[in-house]
């Protein structure tokens, strides 16, 4: 493909795409030469987006209304060939579900799992996520990057829950080892992993409060991230997707 044309890039996801949108609105990302669209739905309506006949289609009026809000082009469906590359953001694939219990095994003997169990967990984590299966189908035709939802937000998650579930001493190397396993598994499906940026990680397996969507403890949003986080993901995604285009 000619490189002087605008790069058609789509961010698909659930409520986690909000941090990407915030990054764009806050001018944290250089989108020169990039034609960016968002597509997806939040909350339970995300489950109403189904992969049918090779494209993602809303199956409820509520999901259609979400799409009207999120996609300014009025795109009713999403096909792999609609864009040059895709970022699957969040999409119900949560880093906490795979990495956190295994990291816990480094500090809590009873949480140790064998490599065979770990491999089974990884397979089920990916295969059990409908959006991951969709990403795999999209990746057969276009580059797909997948950014799982990041670790829960520090200081917003209750400390007793942290103590009960998080290995706050997990190291960069321990995380990296697991991310490498995820990356390798996704690569077999043609999907490129975007791991949670290390600078956003704190206390072993939590997201630093500076990257939380709402840092006020009263809101208690332990899940969503802010524009600063979104910028790290989107910059990495565009950079890697463009590189894939160049080498394609």
């Amino acid at each position: 493909m000619p490189l002087d044309r605008t790069f058609q890039f789509c961010v698909y996801g659930d409520s986690h795409i909000a941090c990407i949108k915030n990054a764009v609105d806050e001018d944290r990302v250089d989108l020169t030469g990039v034609d960016l669209e968002f597509w997806g739905a939040a909350g339970p309506r995300f489950r109403d987006l189904h992969f049918v006949d090779g494209r993602i289609t809303p199956t409820s009026p509520e999901a259609e209304r979400y799409l009207e809000v999120i996609n300014f082009e009025g795109r009713k469906e999403l096909s792999p060939t609609d864009f040059e590359a895709y970022l699957f953001m969040g999409c119900r694939l949560r880093a906490s579900e795979f990495l956190v219990p295994i990291l816990r095994g480094h500090s809590d003997a009873t949480a140790f799992v064998s490599s065979a169990v770990r491999a089974t967990m990884l397979h089920r984590w990916l295969e059990g996520c409908r959006s991951y299966r969709v990403a795999r189908e999209f990746a057969k035709k276009r580059p797909v990057l997948f950014a799982p939802a990041g670790f829960l937000n520090d200081r917003l998650i209750k400390e007793d829950e942290v103590q009960a579930t998080i290995n706050t001493g997990a190291t960069l190397e321990q995380r990296a080892e697991l991310w490498r396993e995820v990356e390798a598994a996704m690569a077999q499906d043609g999907v490129t992993l975007l791991a949670q940026p290390e600078e956003t990680v704190t206390r072993g397996a939590l997201t630093h409060i500076d990257y939380a969507a709402k840092s006020e403890a009263v809101d208690g949003d332990t899940v969503h991230k802010n524009g600063a986080y979104g910028a790290l993901i989107l910059n990495a995604a565009i950079s890697r997707a463009k590189a894939a285009r160049i080498t394609a």
């Binding site: 409520s15 939040a42 999120i70 969507a213 949003d221």
Partner: peptide, 10 residues
């Protein structure tokens, strides 16, 4: 919470 976050952004 998911919907709040989403609607805040969009």
């Amino acid at each position: 919470k998911c919907e709040e976050e989403f609607l805040d952004a969009f």
